[in-house]
């Protein structure tokens, strides 16, 4: 199967100043009196894997939704691939979303559509100029990447949890994003399937040279090779480093994640 290049209709692609593809500075986000993110800072470099580790309800999913513009921020800067997310209008944010993939915690596959239609949906919606034959090739190529080309005409309800996760990943991959945001990619999966999904994520990252931001509390995600780990406590980046460094961190609140 030949690889098909994607030519999105982009007005202008901002130049990147260095290898930083995602930069968050002094980010604040509250819901009423619940201060979820307080002065949060983060940088993601090209080709890097960053895992944001935190307890349930610590604001990990809020962070990732602010990055993609699904939630507005109260204060602070988010710059993704040269776009300043809080300042973007609808047109510009759509341009950015072509280049940033998002794997939802619940997979978010459209129940009323087949696997094929689920994968075609972002292609057709982003005004990408591709012919019907090329769409078919792209769908099959994405499904082959996740090893599920035989499910193309199945409905999401006919798939197992692991298969649904893989299809959701294929849908994320179909636009060949430069950054992939993973929201709890192994939640709800058994340890073996969870490990398979992580291996698949690593494989995809190597194949497409993407940068990954992984939100998780799963230790298997933390152990991804060369991953930089950011520990999110009280809405702040509390500690940062590699697995081996943080495992022996003097602060108990950090160390307890690795015990």
């Amino acid at each position: 199967m030949t690889a098909v290049s994607i030519i999105p209709v982009l007005a202008s692609i901002p130049e990147l100043p260095d290898s930083t593809v995602l930069s968050i500075e002094h980010l604040y986000k509250s819901f009423g009196d619940n201060h979820v993110l307080q002065d949060f800072n983060l940088k993601l470099h090209k080709g890097e894997n960053v895992v944001v580790l935190g307890k349930s309800g610590s604001g990990k999913s809020v962070l990732i939704k602010c990055i993609i513009g699904l939630l507005s921020v109260d204060r602070g800067d988010i710059e993704v691939l040269g776009y300043k997310v809080p300042e973007l209008d609808h047109e510009k944010i759509d341009q950015l979303r072509v280049r940033v993939g998002f794997l939802f915690q619940s997979n978010a596959l459209y129940d009323s559509m087949t696997v094929r239609e689920n994968l075609e949906f972002p292609l057709r919606r982003h005004w990408i100029q591709v012919k019907a034959r090329e769409v078919e090739e792209m769908v099959m190529s994405a499904l082959e990447d996740v090893g599920l080309s035989h499910t193309v005409d199945m409905m999401p309800s006919e798939l197992s949890g692991g298969m649904r996760k893989r299809i959701a990943l294929a849908r994320t991959l179909i636009l060949k994003p430069e950054i992939i945001l993973y929201d709890e990619p192994t939640t709800g999966l058994d340890p073996i399937t969870g490990k398979e999904i992580i291996d698949l994520m690593v494989e995809i990252q190597k194949k497409y040279a993407t940068s990954s931001l992984i939100i998780s509390h799963d230790m298997n995600c933390v152990k991804i090779e060369n991953a930089r780990i950011v520990v999110l406590i009280e809405g702040k980046c509390y500690a940062e480093g590699r697995y081996e460094e943080l495992k022996n961190h003097p602060e108990y609140r950090v160390k307890q994640f690795f015990e």
């Binding site: 609808h90 759509d94 979303r97 939802f104 459209y110 129940d111 005004w127």
Partner: peptide, 21 residues
């Protein structure tokens, strides 16, 4: 029920991320 289940299973968010209003 349809839109409610789409909302709680993040399908509406996924639609927005896919460049759809």
């Amino acid at each position: 029920a349809e839109l409610g289940s789409m909302k709680v299973s993040e399908q509406i968010d996924a639609m927005e991320v896919s460049g759809t209003n």
